[in-house]
Amino acid sequence: MIRGIRGAITVERNEAGEIIAATETLLREMVRANDVAAHDVSFVLISVTDDITAAFPAQALRRLDGWTYVPVMCTREIPVPGSLPRCIRVMMTVETDKRQDEICHVYLKDAAMLRPDLSLTKKTEM
């Protein structure tokens, strides 16, 4: 079954190093929390808010061993007034035997407020 794993993280500054490092942290945590192997990933879609322009966060995926051939694409979020600033969101589609309610979605830093009902913290309390 193909399942989606969601994640998000915020950055303090629009700086290339911080954007790539934060994205790598998020990806590694999504992989760890869901026991994901690169060969089970269909694709990864990464979106950013309009205030993130200093780097392509997809570069972080190439820092993960074995992820060379995983398709990845960056896009922009809809600029909704009042939405969370400096936010990087990830949708990772994977082949897994897990049920939807067994997937651990990962929301880090200020992004934890986006979906506290589905966050990794909530799952680990269960």
Rank of each mutant, 00 (worst) to 15 (best):
K109M: 00
M113V: 15
V41S: 10
R76Y: 00
R62A: 06
E77D: 03
L27P: 03
C104N: 05
Q59C: 02
A55K: 02
P57I: 14
I20A: 09
V31P: 00
D101M: 11
P57E: 12
V44T: 14
N34E: 09
E24V: 07
V41Y: 09
V106F: 01
G4L: 13
S119I: 01
K109R: 15
G82L: 13
V41F: 09
Q59A: 13
N34G: 08
V44E: 01
E15F: 08
M126G: 13
L84C: 08
K109T: 02
A54Q: 05
D50P: 07
L45Y: 10
D97A: 15
P81T: 11
I88T: 09
S42V: 15
E102S: 01
V31F: 02
N34F: 05
M92Q: 10
L114A: 01
G82A: 11
L120E: 03
V48M: 08
M126C: 07
D101K: 11
I20Y: 06
V72L: 04
K122S: 02
H105C: 05
A33I: 00
I9T: 15
H39E: 15
P81M: 10
T96Q: 10
K122P: 00
L26W: 10
C104F: 03
D97C: 08
E125Q: 07
T124Q: 13
T96M: 13
T25H: 12
A38D: 03
I5Y: 06
D97Y: 09
D50C: 00
L84K: 08
L64Q: 01
L26P: 04
F43K: 11
T23H: 03
F56A: 05
